[in-house]
């Protein structure tokens, strides 16, 4: 298997993942209070589980309802 074969996946996957990651990080940095936890905890979770599990966890458990 060579890289060119998986490029059609790789490019959009990377774009989508980074869009999600970027959006999550933006949200974390523009909010000072969270439903649970604090900024450091959510940054670590988001970055460690960056392939969508971290961001989803943040939006379900961490994001305040305004």
């Amino acid at each position: 298997m060579n890289v060119t074969e998986i490029l059609p996946f790789l490019i959009p996957l990377i774009i989508a993942q980074f869009a999600l990651l970027g959006y999550t990080l933006y949200h974390i940095f523009t909010h000072n209070t969270y439903k649970r936890g604090n900024r450091t905890v959510w940054l670590i979770i988001t970055l460690v589980f960056m392939n969508f599990v971290g961001p989803i966890l943040y939006f379900i458990l961490g994001k305040e309802d305004n």
Partner: peptide
């Protein structure tokens, strides 16, 4: 405005790509 739309949008796109990607890999 709550961001749910974009979040779910990206998640379902990710799932859509991952299905064939996992099969391929």
């Amino acid at each position: 405005r709550s961001g749910k739309l974009w979040l779910l949008f990206i998640i379902f796109i990710l799932f859509g790509i991952m299905n064939p990607a996992i099969a391929k890999l």
